[in-house]
Design a binder for these strands. Structure first.
Lengths: 329, 329
DNA sequence: CTGAAAGCGCTTACAG
DNA sequence: CTGAAAGCGCTTACAG
């Protein structure tokens, strides 16, 4: 394998000079520069990154921690992150917690030991140990999709999005609006969206009923089961609409309703969040909220880069959203 | 930052001994071992990976080159890869060519310079420069989804899958089967699937007609446009079925057919490949072929690991598939 | 404009 | 069972 020493020898200069030319740092005569560049070209020489980062303490790698890679949201976000990072020649080191919160902490430490230059975390929960682990890395950091006390974040406007959706249902004269959420240990998806639903019902003088609510786990099946449970709990008092906090669960709910012979939206309207590809093509097409995940990924990457350049950054960026009215309401 | 030297000092031993304990290589008295481990625990010390890899020439990182991360196939595959890699404490360095074939070559070189321990490539084409670039890395390598001369691969059974699908259509008495493919510079998706379609038509004594065929680019829209073009080309001789080489394009084709008032499958049957989440939930649900992407990812990772351990490997593994008959046929 | 030398934090023969 | 020393391939003050 060719090293900087080989190049230096071939060019009859010191490796110091080669390094300077390659990094465009300090002077080098035009003649020497050309000679070195030609040899580099010929040999296809590429510096060993680990040697370089051992010395410079920079790796050119950004760690990304995802709850689950094989998910539409995650892959869109990573697409956005990669778009801006690759433009600046950073690579992504990918870790997947598979929804195991212990792994979030573990991966934060792991990424640190791998000398990543920064970390982007899509967390599913917030807890002290996680926060401490992040602090201890002392690395440029950004949280995406979840507000993490003390750290910069790019978040979705979960509260207002859910308020808008609930209001829209109310304004369309739905009176008994059911709700399928996820566990509230996830503040963004589980907490804020539910809070918005409840408060909006109240503001509109509608009563919130426990038996109209169910908790899922992000899977399509859990939406199906949630809908089933609600209908069972309600007996004769069937809801006339259901607001589901993710599209996938909403589609599960639709499946159950269709199976049972309910017409959507005539008997029961359905609304989701996420604007998944699915939402557009199910029948009836699903009313949902687009979160611009890719753009959020771009912004998160941008902020991370800005931190690394010691630029001023905003501590909290709220990604806008768009309500997409379709046939399920 | 604490280094191995700090640990050695605190434990009153040499850094040699610390290294031995941490790597479980060579002897160390039980007493010394415990003392070191306790201090490591207390300080939260983690070795600097770049120093380690500079010395050992191993990084613990596997490079993955994808055509497009924000795609269902890719994210499933990466999920499978990650599952087996993370179990053995390898991380994934992710690169995304965004369907730019020059970048495939570029990333192969980049990953080499980043000292990845191996490369998994999902390529969209095959060409000499790419093959040369891979050879030059001299790294454990596996191609996924595409057969690459001279390198081990995990491939889908594109030819037989497309044969089965075409035969199934023929056996269901469809006579004029249209086809929407992709460019044949992609041997797997563009070449084999088309070849299978044509040869199966012939075997069944059906004529293959140019005007029954269109070429898309993987996008839903291109399926829509392809269907439109075929119908236009056919005039009165409308097809009674269409075989589309990806689910997404098949769904685009369905959209167009529905818009134009064709009933599926009564007027025109539709079949895809890929078993995307979408395929199950569109109306009518789409007949398709499941490719077990995640399993293919697992196998690719397994083979890479085996290579790294110098184990015997099979040079070509063909992933099985499953035809899923649904309502669109 | 150029180079000698030190040092980044590890591991690994080698010697004892 | 343990340690001194060399060396992995870079970059960067420093001196000239």
């Amino acid at each position: 394998m060719t090293t900087i020493n080989d190049i230096a020898k071939m060019a009859n200069v010191s490796r110091t000079t080669v390094s300077r030319v390659l990094n465009n740092s300090g002077y080098a005569s035009e003649e020497v520069r050309k000679r070195i560049l030609r040899i580099v070209e010929e040999t296809g020489y590429m510096p060993i990154v680990s040697a370089k980062s051992l010395r410079t303490k920079k790796s050119g790698v950004i760690g990304v921690i995802l709850p689950k890679i094989s998910t539409e949201t995650s892959s869109r976000v990573v697409g956005g992150i990669n778009e801006v990072l690759s433009r600046e020649n950073f690579q992504i080191l990918l870790t997947d917690t598979e929804l195991d919160r212990e792994k979030e902490i573990e991966y934060v430490r792991l990424l640190k030991s791998r000398q990543v230059d920064g970390i982007i975390l899509l967390s599913t929960n917030v807890n002290d140990r996680l926060i401490r682990a992040i602090s201890e890395t002392n690395l440029p950091f950004i949280s995406l999709g979840q507000e993490l006390p003390g750290f910069p974040s790019v978040v979705y406007d979960d509260y207002n999005a859910a308020v808008d959706m609930t209001n829209m249902l109310v304004q369309n004269r739905y009176q008994r609006i059911a709700f399928i959420g996820v566990g509230e240990d996830d503040p963004a998806v589980g907490g804020l969206r539910k809070q918005a639903y409840i408060e909006t019902l109240e503001k509109n003088g509608l009563s919130m009923e426990e038996r109209l609510m169910a908790v899922g786990d992000f899977s399509i099946e859990s939406g199906y089961e949630g809908m089933k449970a609600i209908l069972k709990q309600c007996g004769k008092d069937v809801p006339d609409a259901v607001f589901v906090v993710t599209d996938r669960m909403a589609i599960g709910a639709m499946e159950y309703l269709k199976e049972q012979g309910y017409r959507i939206p005539e008997d029961i309207a359905v609304a989701g969040i996420g604007a998944s590809a699915l939402s557009k093509y199910v029948t009836p097409s699903l009313t949902t909220i687009e979160y611009h995940n890719k753009e959020a990924g771009r912004k998160a990457a941008g902020i991370l880069l800005a931190q690394m350049k010691n630029q001023q950054i905003e501590n909290k960026i709220v990604q806008n959203y768009r309500l997409i009215r379709r046939d399920s309401v």
